[in-house]
């Protein structure tokens, strides 16, 4: 169980924002912090990792107090056992892939051709065995992302060996990648989350990603958590039964004679649906909507 109750004054583009968040996260959960940029999502991760000092409050992870301004406790980042993936990866340019991974796993630097079994397993589960002697500068974006993820996992596994609970923090790790790669890495992320029994906290502003990956989502706006719950209870306004309900993003609204045609992004597909005038006037491009269709005669493929 992770309990966070922190305050921090942020200087955002729109002025000063008072970040004040309270959350409880179950062990083994995959949760998302969702919201527009510049509202403090990343700051929450940084406070958890010890990279940003909260103005006040407390952070408790698996019964250990990591931060408490009343008791004057503030663990250094080194004392907190967690893995963090930065938005721009932050790979060490002077170290090879294998050395980057080994960096958080033990004290001494690694010798060539003597990989520990844990490092070998990590290289294999992240699909990096073939790239182990390459430098980060020669990797593609997706490969860099895999290395950053595996490096953070290395730190998590090192902590697990010392009896710490496995905690992984991801700061928009996939936002710089193209769609295909993104979907593929989301799958890998889920697989690793399950394989290593991680507690994962993801910062994202991609609803599809939130739906696919997480069981719980915290929506942060202007420094406050405005909604939380399962992705469908948070994002879908209404629950409809006996119908297909899909969440879709409005890509375009165009008027044809008396009706309106909505171009919608449903998953990876673009569909066009017809909307009435009052419906079309309520929404704007970029809105997330739910579309439902009666489910009495679907065509089923397998």
């Amino acid at each position: 169980m992770i309990r966070i109750a922190c305050r921090k004054e942020l200087v955002a583009a729109t002025g000063r924002v008072q970040l004040d968040v309270r959350m409880e996260i179950e062990r083994g959960a995959f949760v998302t912090l969702f919201g527009p940029s510049g509202v403090g999502k990343t700051t929450v991760l940084r406070m958890l990792a010890g990279l940003t000092h909260p103005d006040g409050g407390s952070i408790e992870v698996a019964g250990d107090i990591w931060f408490d301004d009343q008791k004057r406790i503030a663990l250094t980042p080194q004392q907190r056992s967690l893995g963090i993936v930065f938005q721009d990866y932050a790979l060490f340019p002077n170290l090879t892939v294998a050395e980057n991974l080994a960096y958080g796993m033990r004290q001494s630097s690694i010798q060539k051709n003597t990989l520990s079994p844990q490092l070998k397993r990590l290289l294999e589960s992240s699909g990096l065995s073939a790239l182990r002697d390459r430098l980060p500068a020669s990797l593609s974006g997706g490969q860099k992302q895999r290395v950053a993820l595996a490096r953070a996992l290395g730190r998590v596994l090192y902590g697990v060996a010392e009896g710490k609970s496995p905690l992984l923090l991801l700061d928009e790790p996939l936002s710089a990648l193209d769609m295909t790669l993104r979907v593929q890495l989301q799958d890998e992320l889920l697989a690793l989350h399950r394989e290593f029994g991680l507690t994962t906290i993801l910062v994202s502003h991609d609803i599809a990603e939130v739906f696919k990956l997480s069981q719980q989502v915290f929506v942060i706006e202007d420094g406050k958590i405005v909604r939380s719950g399962s992705p469908s209870s948070v994002f879908l306004q209404q629950q409809v039964h006996g119908k297909f309900q899909l969440q879709a993003q409005v890509l375009a609204i165009r008027k044809e004679d008396v009706i309106y045609v909505l171009s919608l992004l449903v998953g990876q597909d673009i569909v066009e649906v017809i909307a009435a005038k009052d419906e079309a006037e309520r929404m704007k491009v970029g809105d997330m909507i739910a579309i439902a269709a009666k489910a009495f005669s679907p065509m089923i493929f397998s």
Binding site: A49, G50, L51, T76, P77, Q78, R80, S81, L82, G83, I84, F86, D88, A90, F92, P93, N94, L95, Y103, G104, S109, R151, R155, Y158
Partner: peptide, 27 residues
Amino acid sequence: LPSNLLEASRALGKSDWYSLTHILLPN
């Protein structure tokens, strides 16, 4: 250097001195 190199090294459990000699200076 990107400031998150040092942060990444700290988050990976390394002291500032170790980070300086193994990450910052070699770069």
